[in-house]
Nucleic acid binder design. Structure first.
Lengths: 362, 362
DNA sequence: AAGGATTGGGAAAAGCTTTTCTCACTTCGA
DNA sequence: TCGAAGTGAGAAAAGCTTTTCCCAATCCTT
């Protein structure tokens, strides 16, 4: 640090307890007024090159950094947004939030993280706090949305994006993965590989995602001309145990399936384990496809699991994009479903030509 | 909303584009000066009960909320902290961050989330941004700390807590799980159950955690008098595949182990799968204990996996506590290691009396 | 009833920037 | 050489709170 910096700290307004340097310090050290210093720093007004240079030099020497609080107060834009989650930012919310944060931080926007964990009181408190901090926008994400939560009664005019979460209000913007399309992708792929009897093992029916994936499954079967002989759908919970159980059940029947499309990767893993126990080889006898493309799960399976990827990061990026749009005044609303992809590994029996990059887009 | 609120919005300073109500609005509607309104809202000065009541009533009617930006500017305390992560807030950072956020939000402190993903440029930018926002503190968390990152050259006097991450500087505060103790906990437990030949399958040696857990393993063996006959330590990577591979290797030998202590839950899962393939029953013939207590992994295993829990939420809470301490002026420094617990399930062969709540503390 | 004490409320500054307006000084042309 | 045009920099207000200081009015005491 230079002498100037020491001066700025030692001399001058010693009384001010704050350790942060202000534009006053810059101005004083550069021998100009505060307004002039501001203009120099913001490349704004009409200044001589010499003055501008001097101010900038001083500023960088003492490591001056403008106080965002004051700037925000002045501009009535805080350059912050809040993210409200219930998932405890778990496996699903997180990739979204991460992509979102990245997108926004590229625009100089910082992100407040708030975790309400399904406690309405905490949620309310968080919203109050965010409003107090004058956030420029709000993102709401939820756990694997079972039932849609009511829209927040937030201040009018505040941009809100719901991502991986759904509300009824027609003027709200909801960003969701295309569960139906993702399921169809998987089933169509299996059918194209010659599988005839494709069963579906999935999670609790109360999840909208479960219902949509089931729809996609049925549609794709119909389109492949497989309905009559194949349709078979078992709903349970999201666990490996259920995957094993359901598989055992299916293979007790007279005509067991030659492919399993599972509602998530844990179920798929359970299914693969059960098939191994039953002496059925995967993928030769039975092909298996999962959902979520949860890497540790999918890659750890034997054989590695083909799975539908919800492209959560794309969802997060899109949320960021929409929020930026709304913040700059454009109105966006409605429900948007973003495409899933299929990540092909070995469990489905496709010749994994490019096993690493083998992605089919919806 | 009441008439007063409509007045506040429709009448008065219409020119001001901002939609947020200010203390001016409250004052005007209550027929008092701004200062008086402030005093009423903060229960501060000497006011008649009647005036105070009137101001409060108006404020609540129009839904007034003080502008934290202005408050922060005035108080020179922003009531915000930044969390910097490299883990992409993955599986490890997240429980910590969540507990931390909860702890701090109870004190009215909001949390900026910044993800640097090991990019030093992004990290620097984030720090700059946080300093601009005048955060009152900083928390740094890292991925499963392989090598310790250098300390940040942050503004002097800004409280910083490193959690699940380690730096060399002696006046830094680092909060870490007690890997060594956790490992000892597992091994001691196995020894107490009568296992004699306990092998250790673990991750890459470059991780400090790997070295510490190995130390704990050796110490516990020594304390149990098992050194000569048992010591066996295989380092590989953190995957299920490695768990399977290492297990196969161990069971090709003349005298295979009767227990496996694994460096994480994925390795443990691989080990269990390999044992099943080899026809060795778990836990009857071989006991298995993992590390991390990653619920989906541990509960999905067959049998459910006994595992060491790093109590990441306690770590997060402690980080919050320390940060609050530092923010209120107390100096804290040094490396603190918080105890792990052992979560007993079935894979270790303990009579799982209370299988759900069976926790041994370090 | 008059002086002092108390009470209730207002005015203003401070906290840090940005921006607009104004002013003094230079330069150029006539 | 004088007036006009132009250039560079400062003063001040605004943005929203909080807090200190002060003043006017009321009350009590003697």
């Amino acid at each position: 640090m230079s002498d100037a910096a020491d001066d700025a700290i030692a001399g001058g307004d010693q009384r001010r307890g704050s350790l942060a340097l202000t534009i006053r310090d810059v101005a004083r050290l550069a021998g100009v007024s505060i307004g002039t210093a501001s203009k120099a720093l913001n490349a704004n007004g009409r200044l001589s090159a010499e003055t501008r240079g001097r101010v900038l030099r001083v500023a960088s020497e003492i490591g001056y950094r403008p106080n965002d609080l004051a700037q925000s107060l002045h501009r009535a834009r805080s350059m912050t947004v809040g993210i409200l989650s219930n998932d405890s930012f778990g496996r699903f919310a997180f990739p979204i939030v991460e992509a979102l944060e990245r997108r926004l931080s590229d625009h100089g926007i910082a992100v407040f993280m708030c975790n309400a964990t399904d406690d309405p009181v905490r949620e309310r408190r968080h919203i109050e706090q965010l409003l107090g901090k004058r956030v420029d926008g709000l993102v709401v994400t939820a756990r694997r949305a079972d039932k849609r939560e009511p829209i927040e009664p937030v201040a009018r005019g505040l941009p809100v994006v719901y991502v991986y979460s759904r509300v009824e209000s027609p003027d709200a913007l909801c960003l969701l993965p295309d569960d139906k399309g993702g399921a169809a992708l998987a089933v169509t792929h299996l059918a194209a590989l010659g599988r005839k009897r494709i069963a579906h093992i999935t999670g609790p029916e109360r999840f909208e995602a479960v219902r949509l994936r089931e729809e996609g499954y049925r549609d794709a079967l119909a389109r492949a001309g497989l309905v009559a002989e194949a349709e078979e759908c078992l709903a349970g919970d999201w666990s490996e145990a259920w995957g094993r159980e359901a598989t055992r059940r299916l293979f007790k029947r007279r005509r067991p399936p030659d492919a399993l499309f599972c509602g998530n990767d844990q179920i798929a893993r359970g299914a693969i384990d059960a098939l191994r126990d039953l002496g059925r080889s995967v993928p030769a006898e039975v092909a298996v496809v999962g959902f979520d493309n949860w890497e540790v799960m999918a890659k750890g399976a034997r054989p590695p699991l083909t799975s539908v990827d919800m492209n959560l990061d794309a969802l997060g990026r899109a949320a960021g994009e929409c929020l930026l749009d709304m913040m700059s005044g454009r109105a966006v609303a409605g429900v948007r479903r973003l495409p899933c992809s299929l990540v092909v590994r070995e469990s489905c029996g496709a010749h994994a030509r490019s096993s690493a990059a083998g992605e089919l887009n919806a």
